[in-house]
Write a protein that binds this DNA or RNA. Structure first.
Lengths: 221, 221
DNA sequence: TTTCATCTTGACCATACGGTCAGGAAATGA
DNA sequence: TCATTTCCTGACCGTATGGTCAAGATGAAA
């Protein structure tokens, strides 16, 4: 899974350079620094949101000077958009991998498992998206329409089919998916709160067990 | 329910005035303007987060000048803290009202219903808290420890008792509560996303039906 | 080693923003 | 009516922040 996000990051790293002709190979330095910047930016943006983050913070976290960062990206906004673009694919992978040929209940439970795993392994990514959507997704609206919506339409249709075939209990597929997002991402986005309420106790295994029970009871026939 | 939040707002309105002696009655103008400011601030903070909101925005939304706002509140931070303080009680009311003397399943379903209703009626409040907790709850840490934690401890103990008495199916009470928060608040906090994915279709009734099914299947014996 | 492109930075700029203040306008009340 | 408190504002200030730029440092290629 680290692979997934890594790959996505690498992909976006190969994007248009500032003034360079398109399709020119990026130097090693360029690759290294772009990756540094994006990783630092993920850290900062996910903790403070877009508006609450400063270029100086990102520069410090990346170990580069501010003007140097502006050498690789045209501005704060472009860094943010690059991050969102680069992480989107990895973020949607679990849903994309729900397999029409698989056993319905297993597929859903596997999806829940993967999502929860991502919340644990990549809380920064989760919070980055949460922040963005909370603010009305000003820098992500196209993504929602063009990438997310078709995917959700496809998968809700699949679930609907499964239900019609009597292989899953009856539920509204859209709300089912929303609930998976909500329950799994909650552990990353609201970690501070959960930390306090669970003081010290183990969180993840309990969550895993709970969610498996939840969706098994909901969907089993 | 409007009553609840209104009352809470009024309560916090009666707080310490800038330089006035404590326990002096606030004038009508003072009441009116403080309420205006807090309502405007709720609007702005819930849409842009603390850092992303400016006093000028709040002033404009309240129909007052910036210095005039600083006449009523010592600064941006105090407005924000006042809001959180004033809304906390109303926010926790649904959980507080879970009745040990009631029928377990009914009580939980009623709780879910109330929470979902709040997400629909008071999305701004939901987003305000979501924003704050996402950023690590810097202005809310005491509340979490002093108000939320004891309440959650009490209610999880109650649920545990219900389960031990064989009146609810076995589940981890903490994760149960987390899931209720997650699934209900999701409809307010991620409304932008849901709007896109449900384009036009009715959201709330579907959510209501889905969540009732979800928790009924999870908790029924 | 020289040359050229790439990379890096200190100094600087313009704007936005939180906050102050002196003084004026409105209420309040005697 | 006048006096006093409460309320309101234009003008202003210091700092933070996004962004620019000219010039220098550091590679890569010959």
């Amino acid at each position: 899974m680290t692979q997934d996000v890594g790959t996505a990051l690498r992909t976006l790293t190969e994007n248009r350079m500032n003034q360079t002709d398109p399709a020119s190979k990026p130097s090693l330095i360029q690759q290294r620094n772009r990756k540094r910047i994006l990783d630092a930016a993920l850290d900062v943006f996910s903790r403070h949101g877009f508006r609450g983050s400063t270029l100086d913070q990102i520069a410090a976290a990346a170990g580069l000077s501010k003007p140097n960062i502006l050498y690789y990206f045209s501005g704060k906004e472009e860094i943010h958009v690059s991050l969102l673009n680069g992480l989107m694919d990895a973020w949607l992978a679990p849903l994309r991998e729900v397999d029409p040929a698989g056993e319905p209940l297993d597929e859903i439970l596997r999806y829940v498992h993967r999502k929860l795993e991502m919340s644990r392994e990549f809380p920064r990514e989760s919070r980055l998206f949460a922040n963005e959507i909370l603010q009305g997704a000003p820098r992500m609206a196209p993504h929602l329409e063009i990438e997310l919506k078709p995917l959700v339409d496809k998968k809700t249709a699949l679930i609907k089919r499964w239900i019609a075939e009597g292989r899953l209990a009856r539920v509204d597929p859209h709300h089912l998916i929303f609930s998976v997002w909500a329950t799994t991402q909650h552990y990353a986005d609201f970690a501070t709160q959960i930390q306090v309420l669970m003081d010290g106790r183990e969180v993840h295994e309990g969550a895993e067990a709970f969610l498996e029970t939840l969706y098994r009871r909901l969907l089993a026939l």
